[in-house]
Write a protein that binds this DNA or RNA. Sequence first.
DNA 1: ATAGGGTTAG
Length: 815
Amino acid sequence: MPTQFLNFDLPENHNLYPSTSLALGNCNSLRYYAEMASKLAQDGRFNDSLMIAESVVVSGVNAVEFADLLNVKLVSSGIVRLLEEGKVGSVVELLNGAMQLGIDPLKLLDRGAINSLSQECRRTMECGEIEEIVSFMETLKGCGMPIKDFVRPYEIIRLCVSQRKPNAAVRYAHIFPHADIMFCTIILEFGKKGDLVSALTVFEASKQNQDTPNLYIYRTIIDVCGLCGDYLKSRSIYEGLIAIKNTPNIYVFNSLMNVNSCDLSYTLDIYKQMQKLGVPADLTSYNILLKSCCLATRVDLAKEIYGELKLLELAGAMKLDVFTYSTLIKVFADAKMWQMAIEIKKDMLSAGVTPNIVTWSSLISACANAGLVDQAIQLFEEMLQAGCEPNSQCYNILLHACVEACQYDRAFRLFRLWKEHALQKDNCEDFGSKTDNTIDLSSTLVVSASIPNCTSASPRGHFSMRVPFRPTTSTYNILMKACGSDYYRAKALMEEMKEVGLSPNHISWSILIDICGGSGNVEGALQILRAMRDAGIQPDVVTYTTIIKVCVENKDFKSAFSLFVAMKRYQIKPNMVTYNTLLRARSQYGSLLEVQQCLAIYQDMRKAGYKPNDYYLKQLIEQWCEGVIQNGNQRKCNFSTRNRTDLGPESMILEKVAEHLQKDSANSISINLRGLSKVEARIVVLAVLRMIREKYTAGDSIKDDVQIFLGVQEVGIRAVRHESVVKEAIIKLLQHDLGLEVISTAPRIGNDRNQDGINHPDKYSKVEENAERVILRANVHFPTRRPVVLQKLRITKESLQSWLIRRLDAPAVHR
DNA sequence: ATAGGGTTAG
């Protein structure tokens, strides 16, 4: 018997040894202890109450028998009181304690207590104490309470998601008998918030106590990868599934293909894998493949798939649906093949598939992309006649069609028409109820099918239908584009957007910048960029590219470059368009700094993984380098036509030039021509000379000879020949074209037919050539015995100096 | 349970 018992404030005549008396089978005693426990609970002394219960149970009494004798009202009032005092912990202990003794905690609770518990749940929820609420839920669930009635599971999940608490969410999921379903919901919710890290945490936790993977969860996390833009992650999740020798089902495959639809080759690969694993593709699989073709602009392949699908349909194995046809229409719409899109529509109708709003939108978009506004409007009317209600997106496509075709007035007329109808409707319904002058465009409007300016042969419809017209931010953005160069009109539209309760987004601001900058107002455009930031809208890569374009167009290269630096500081990754906009800034290079800046951008572009395939840039650099040779346009022209064929797309010339122009010219200059072709070597040498000239003009003196490394003899006769060709060309360039003094400072290898012969007797080279053959064979076993002979040229300091002075006397042509 | 349409920069 616990000694604490003695300290209790017990009623008179109590028996300190319940077990003894109970052993005597005294029913009254049991009733007595139950009452005592109840009273203690009423006073909030749960520990003591539990102690009695424990003793009773230990003495061999059935817990249920004892529980039946407890006074629910008393116990419940104690629970209510403690909850009011905020002592949730004690209540939890009581409930857990009862359970351990085999007493159903539900038997201790009346309606009032349950209400209090429910209130406590709500309070904890409102305080956002997610860990507490989950613990509480665990207890309540353990007691067999209907926790779903206390707090809706979705609320708890949302709280976990907003607080980024994946572990709490996992604990909560485990409360449910079918935790997997909860896991999916949770993963998806994290995904919708873009929190892939948390989603993955939940995913990993869900794998813990599972002998076989739940494919539903796998599918969900793959979808979430797509939602969060990390499609590569979805691949590793799929590989994880394959690694544990599990065959994914069609849902996993379809999701994986969908998430990776931006990569057609991968999608096709997965398609093949599923065939290999014996998972038959369904219509969704094919629809996703079509989507992937669409994204990859592979019209041919999409056609092929369509052909196969038609065969399958003929065989009765498939029934193409509205998704198939809509996607196909999109394929052709994007490819500007509007007739084909119309063909698909015919196919669809004859197959008995009804076009829906998406199909119609894609069809309208097909005409829009082809610049056929009348056709687009005709289709719009046809859609209305078919009883299909347009939505905002559809309106936007139509407006965009007008804008693309530069029919700005028409776009505004359509917009005004739709808006007026909305107002009419609004006035009819609650006339005079509006006190402010804001326009509620969210109501339904009546639109007549007869649209102004419709020159097509379409029937002037006398029907009208109820059409919801809700302009979106997109609608206004398109209209802002329709302002052409009218900056104030665009600005007014942005104001109107705010008045109707829409928020301008980064696109709206970018358009405004474009329009402002289009009129040559660089400073104004820069101001808008600042205003945008002040408004809390973060510029994106397009915003920056737009404003860089504005600067470039107005020859403000300094601002363009500093904007480029700024965007990188804001961790906005430039893309191909950004780089090209910057690199195409100049039609000719002047200063060394300009060239260095440009090459830095070029190198950055390469580092970012963009293919440097810019002939224009190469041409500019070559032009700049050639500028160092003054005499004769003839030679220059000659050269530029020749080198365009010589510099293949693989040429690393810009990289090489960049490398040399970055060198610190304060120290001695050296030029490394190893591995370069004749043409490339020429450009690099000229680039360095031009740099020297620029630096000299700026006040730097010539400190040393310029070293030119031609390469190391190591590859064999062929390489030697090639190198001597380069060497000859460079010597010719330096001596003949530029009048510089060149000294060859290394023992020559191979048959050099050059005339400069300062210190190379012919017999020496013969010996070397013979030695080469021998060494090549021996080299396999004794690599260290291979002689490494560096080919080197040197331009003397003195001749450079006199060259530079000559330069100054006769100013350069290319400036 | 999976899938589809609109707006910005070259």
